[in-house]
Computed example of a mutant assay.
Amino acid sequence: MTWRMPSETAPHDRTWMAFPREGFTMGDSAAGREECYAAWTEVAHAVAEFEPVSMVVDPTEIERARRMLSAEIDIVELPLDEFWMRDFGPTFVVDDDRPNVLGAVDWTFNGWGSPDWAEWTKSAEVVRGVAPLVGAEIVSSTLVNEGGGIHVDGAGTVLLTETVQLDPRRNPYADKRRVEAEMERTIGATQAIWLRRGLTRDYESLGTNGHVDIVATIPSPGRLLVHAQTDPAHPDHEVSRDVRAALEGTTDAAGRTWDIVDVPAPATLRDAHGFVDWSYVNHHVVNDGVIACGFGEAVADQRATALLEEAYPGRRVVTVDARPIFARGGGVHCITQQQPRVEAS
C-alpha cells in the first residue's frame, strides 16, 4: 500500500479539535482560563459553519464543553493533557489504490521535545482512541514529529524544518535521509524541502522549535504563501527574508519552481513577553472556506483576507481573533486537524 497525505484543500469529512483543559499552557489566572476556552470555542464554531467538527474533551472538562459548544459539535471523551490537536492528533492519509480506506499516522509525540513544562503523555495516546471511531488504519511511526511540523501539497512535496525533525530532543539519531524515507512511507512525500529554522518566538519557552505552519504553506500546486516580516526592527525580518531566498532555489515534486506570495505580518512587533510570531500563514482550510487568524489590526487583517481569498478562490474567509491562541504557543492551524473524505465502502 502507498499512503498519501492529501492537500488541505481536498474535500474534508470533518475537522478534529481538542478542548482546553487546565494546566500550564492555559495559564493560572481565571481570566486567562476563560480567554483560552473562549478562543478554542470560537474557532470550533467558525469551522462548524463549513463542515462537521469533532472535539476531543478530557473527562474533567465534559460539563464545560457541553455548556460552551453548540449541539452540532460532536464531543469525543478521551484523556488529554495538551490540546493542540494538529500536533498530537492523527495525520490522516489515504491510499489511492484503496479509495475507501482512511489511514491515521501516529507520530511519536513527546511534547515538542519534552520541555520541563510540558504534559503530553495522555495526548500522545489520542490517535489510538480516534482512529477506531472513524475506521482508520493506524500507521505507526517511531519518528518524533507533529502535524504542525509539516505542510504538503498532496502530490509528493513536504515542507520540513531542520530544527524540528532533526531536533536532538526529538530524534537524536535522525538525519535528513532517514526523515525523508519516513515521510515517503507515511505520507507519500517524495520531495522534501528543508527550511533552516522557524520564527524567533517559536524558540522560546512555549515554542515548538520551528514549526513550518507559521512560516509557509502550499495553497495550490506550485504556489507558496510565505510569512513576511517587513519591519527591520523585528528579528523575523531577517528570518523571513532568508526563508524566501531558500525557497526560491527549490522545486516541488513535479519539478516546478515556486510562485511565492508574501503574506505580510501585522504591524504589532511585541507583546508583554517579547517579539510576537503573529502569522496569517497559520490558517485552516475547510470545505468552501478558510478560517483565518486575526490580530485586531483592521488594515493588516483585511489585507490578509484579500490575499487568502485570492489564494483560495471560491472559498469564504472567516477571521477569528487568534491573539489568545498565539499567546499560548500557536494559531488556528495548530488547534485543528482535517480528516479527508474517502469513498464510502
Results as ranks from 00 to 15, higher is better:
residue 52 P to M: 08
residue 53 V to T: 02
residue 54 S to W: 12
residue 54 S to L: 09
residue 60 T to H: 14
residue 61 E to W: 07
residue 62 I to F: 12
residue 62 I to L: 15
residue 67 R to A: 14
residue 68 M to F: 14
residue 71 A to E: 13
residue 71 A to D: 13
residue 77 E to S: 10
residue 78 L to I: 11
residue 78 L to G: 06
residue 80 L to C: 05
residue 80 L to S: 04
residue 80 L to P: 00
residue 81 D to M: 06
residue 81 D to F: 13
residue 81 D to P: 01
residue 82 E to F: 08
residue 84 W to P: 00
residue 87 D to W: 06
residue 87 D to C: 03
residue 89 G to L: 12
residue 89 G to P: 06
residue 92 F to A: 03
residue 92 F to T: 00
residue 92 F to M: 02
residue 93 V to H: 01
residue 97 D to R: 10
residue 102 L to P: 01
residue 103 G to F: 04
residue 105 V to S: 04
residue 105 V to D: 08
residue 107 W to T: 00
residue 107 W to C: 01
residue 109 F to C: 07
residue 112 W to C: 02
residue 113 G to T: 07
residue 115 P to K: 14
residue 118 A to H: 09
residue 120 W to F: 15
residue 121 T to Q: 14
residue 122 K to Q: 11
residue 122 K to G: 07
residue 126 V to G: 07
residue 129 G to K: 11
residue 132 P to M: 14
residue 134 V to G: 03
residue 135 G to M: 08
residue 136 A to Q: 07
residue 138 I to D: 06
residue 138 I to Q: 07
residue 146 E to C: 02
residue 150 I to D: 04
residue 151 H to F: 13
residue 152 V to A: 05
residue 153 D to E: 06
residue 154 G to Y: 07
residue 156 G to Q: 02
residue 158 V to G: 00
residue 158 V to R: 01
